[in-house]
Design a protein around this nucleic acid. Structure first.
Lengths: 197, 197
DNA sequence: TAGATTGTTAATCGATTAACAATC
DNA sequence: TAGATTGTTAATCGATTAACAATC
């Protein structure tokens, strides 16, 4: 977002400007930014370039992170294909893992594929920091544990199952299409009921 | 989850049991369930079957919802393929939309595909309630507006862009892989810094 | 009756919002 | 100096947690 502003040649922005853009209150913007300390100047707002650099530094966005996909079923291979076709900023998929060796040999991709039994060693060797887990729900926790062993610091879980980090310092977030759709369904249902009364 | 219990022949469960299973406190379980009213009996816990039925009724999970995918690029067609291959409970993808007519004719799938210019009318005709939006960020809001016009009540947005409902009664949730990975990166970065001190 | 467990009311916590003095 | 806008401190809000009387 800040890049966008920069691209448009906007050099300075006030908390109110940023708030409008992000749909947040100016108060919250100021509070969050002030957490880092000394980013803006009273009366003049924030310097876009400086703010961008500050956030990148504080949040560790400077370096490109290595990531992998575990589980190359429908979802996993779709993610893999997508990653190859649309390179993203901030991270790069450098490996894929699957328990089925035939599958690994069948898939043709520019990204190195490995069997899951060599996952711990491979994660360490390639210094992979992020893992996208797209295995069946019943294996998600076991796979996550091995990712922790392999030294990843972040896991994005696509399995419809709650998983927890084995060690502290590993963070997990989940994405679950079916779950989100259920929430939408429920929200709308409750809304309609409350209106009917 | 309740289905799972039922499948295992568990007839009754206490708030503590459910809490352990969902990784929530027993207090919260009781509070949430009591919102519906009269689900459990003191001293005996909850009847699994009855609780399931109550939740389904209150949250509107009884009926299968019709859903569509808008935008059949890499992500959208992957979602479509996935939906065809792995039918989900509670909703069914019954249509796909894309702005490129050639693309619609190229893709071969069991699901009906339409051009986006006929989206409003088609959504109404097929009585579609949920839309999965997988179009480029710059078109996401415009597409969402047309989905609102077409009468959907829930939108799942995959574009990396904040979008808002045009009318009240339409709920939107977003899924953003790149965003989630950024959050993981930031969490881990902040964690390591706080440890270093 | 006694033990277990709910439903509800009160206490705590964190996050958002408001207000304002400091300052560019 | 005057206007604008930050950084910070106080107030509000909602959600989670705790406690306990009601009751099966």
């Amino acid at each position: 977002m800040l890049c966008l502003l920069e691209g448009e040649g906007v050099a300075r922005a006030s908390s109110a400007d940023l708030g409008a853009l992000l749909d947040l209150s100016a108060h919250l913007i100021r509070k969050d930014i002030s957490f880092f300390g000394g980013a803006g100047s009273a009366g003049a707002g924030y310097d876009v370039g400086r703010l961008k650099a500050l956030i990148a530094e504080q949040l560790g966005f400077g370096r490109e992170k290595r990531a992998c996909i575990v589980g190359l079923g429908r979802l996993g291979s779709a993610l893999l294909e997508y990653a190859v076709a649309v390179p993203q900023e901030g991270y790069r998929i450098v490996a894929g893992f699957d328990s089925n060796i035939n599958r690994i040999e069948t898939l043709s991709t520019a990204i190195d594929l490995f069997a899951v039994y060599e996952i711990v060693e491979t994660l360490q060797r390639l210094q992979i920091e992020l893992a996208l887990i797209a295995v069946p729900a019943e294996h998600a926790q076991a796979v996550a544990d091995r990712c922790c062993d392999g030294g990843v610091t972040g896991i994005l879980n696509f399995a419809p199952m709650n998983i927890k980090p084995k060690n502290p310092g590993v963070f997990i977030r989940s994405m679950n299409v079916a779950g989100e759709l259920r929430i939408l369904t429920a929200l709308s249902h409750v809304y309609l009921q409350s209106k009917h009364q």
